[in-house]
Write a protein that binds this DNA or RNA. Structure first.
Lengths: 326, 326
DNA sequence: TCAGCTCCTGAAACTTTTTCATTATGCTAT
DNA sequence: ATAGCATAATGAAAAAGTTTCAGGAGCTGA
């Protein structure tokens, strides 16, 4: 038997009309009374019809908070997510963050839409927002981001292992002067990839021959690569923390007349569509986007995963895709 | 006096229950009868309560139907749209169409969410869907698409003029053997750009020196360019109907040892971020994405533009961005 | 032909919203 | 102080809308 307004009215000792008003924003009713009614309604499990239809609309909606879509990896995520949601008859709500801002700037806006689940990628989850989500019973999943200070659910490629794989390949191929172009230094993707790469080099008794920051940006990485390749005794292999930087490095090398991979080997990370373009044939670590998105959604769908709980991290291994740039 | 279900019921000659059912998805009612009721309701101006509350919820949400996000131009649109909507406290709902399918495959899904406005880009609006939207009082705006058979609102870059500008530049620079790599032939972007380009050449008494289809795809365009450049007496300038194809053409030329622009001039269309990468420095026609999105939203916000009305087309001029590929 | 089935329907029961008359409350001008 | 007035909150009842239910129409297969 479905709970009705009548039951709530009886429990609180008011008229049915009062219950209806309690659920209507702007209706003339005492705030104290409204609170009591809302509390009683929650206890009994009564949901007003208006709220019911609103729920139906928002139930099938997953919210994605993305950073800039300039790195082609993220459109890939959006695309995959949208498709997978469509298959299960759900919708995708997208927020794009202004460059280098954190989630807080639009937290209120996001919460106002009362989403039932949020996927955050390429942006920091602040403890502020984490608390708000916990309070509102909203599930949060970090995608391609890991954050140690806030214990929330996260899905990520095994960036450490990916970094190791990249390093191992370069070592196996016998490259001696190995350089690194890093991403944005306070991101988990950057630190983990670098750590994996460094560890495997260290195990072989090697260190970086050269090192620079590329800011996860084509132009910055290209400039860094030019500089790196201009030095005497320049590296003959470079690991770039993502693909667009790797493309920048390749273009830099070509401008200097170096041939890939004969004069310089380049390896990237992500496997964006451009990596397979025949001009680049970039060797890279493929992030299993399809499966990452699947995992993120399964975390959201899993009823045993509660909104307020401390989360776990699901780590998926990437695939070394060997093309011709190494 | 607000229109009621009773009036509708009376007008059609059915029970009030039937009217209620007509507005409830999945309720058992004859489709013919539902249509009649919906039509009468529209005439009388009756809106079901569920629809009414749903409207409030979805009022701040704009739906975008995009094709594949593989062409970097579309992530640009998504990004811009998301930001502009955020500024006015609204949300963006994204649908991604599986490659080469039309809107019909997800029409029902889209309509089930009861959007108040839809922006369609990179996908055909079928008359089917147009009719459905008209029935549900949903505003539709085509972005970067024009369709002559269905009169709906559209915002587009002036592709014809852009094609002309491209042609003029090549003529002014004195190129004699001019080739064309087209996009997908039944899109308005393709036909208009080609038409403008062809017209300006014709006015100078010239025709295409070579012509091929690149399918709006890097690899296809690159292959086409290789073939085009292998023929005896190959073109020394190529207009590509969008930027990724132009990048393909440049890469093809370089593989054949040609230098840009000395041996081959290439001009694209869109001005995607990669066009400005220093390896390409692609000369191209910039689509004014920011303003296109603005116009699309202003069409949606303009209360004098009615959902069911025949629409108008707003044409914005593109900008010729001269870099070093011509 | 007819039982069995599905699908559709209006009446009626039920739920919720809205209207309306009433009361309570507080403020102002005398 | 207190009459006069405006405002807000309330329940009863009317109105509006949804859901249930019993039946009827049409189809199908024995």
């Amino acid at each position: 038997m479905k709970p009705t307004a009548k039951q709530v009215a009886h429990a609180v000792g008011v008229s049915i009309a009062a219950v209806s008003r309690a659920f209507t924003p702007g209706a003339p009713i005492d705030q104290e009374k409204r609170k009591m009614i809302l509390a009683a309604a929650e206890e009994i499990g009564y949901i007003s019809p208006a709220r019911r239809t609103a729920n139906v609309v928002s139930a099938g909606t997953v919210t994605l908070v993305a950073g800039s879509l300039h790195n082609p990896f993220y459109p890939l995520v959006v695309d995959t997510l949208a498709r997978q949601l469509q298959e299960s008859d759900r919708r995708l709500l997208v927020y794009a963050l202004p460059a280098d801002s954190n989630v807080d700037t639009i937290t209120e806006q996001i919460l106002a839409a009362r989403p039932s689940a949020i996927i955050i990628t390429s942006a920091y989850l602040t403890s502020n927002m984490a608390r708000a989500c916990r309070q509102h019973q909203i599930k949060v999943v970090l995608l391609n981001r890991i954050q140690r200070d806030i214990r929330v659910n996260a899905v990520s490629c095994d960036n450490y292992q990916g970094g190791r794989d990249a390093g191992r390949l370069l070592l196996d191929r016998g490259y001696q002067r190995i350089g690194l172009i890093g991403g944005i230094s306070n991101t988990s993707t950057h630190t983990e990839r670098v750590r994996g790469f460094r560890d495997v080099l260290a195990e072989a008794g090697k260190t970086f021959h050269a090192q620079a920051s590329g800011d996860y940006n084509y132009e910055v990485a290209k400039t860094a690569a030019v500089k790196m390749l201009s030095s005497a005794n320049s590296p003959n292999a470079i690991f770039c923390c993502n693909d667009i930087m790797a493309l920048g490095a390749i273009d830099a090398a070509r401008e200097k007349g170096l041939r890939i991979p004969n004069d310089l080997a380049v390896i990237g990370f992500d496997d964006i569509p451009m990596a397979s373009w025949s001009s680049y044939c970039l060797t890279t670590i493929r992030q299993p986007v399809e499966r990452m998105v699947q995992e993120a959604l399964s975390l959201i769908d899993d009823p045993t995963v509660k909104a307020g709980d401390d989360g776990s991290t699901r780590m998926l291994s990437g695939n070394l895709i060997v093309r011709h740039s190494v």
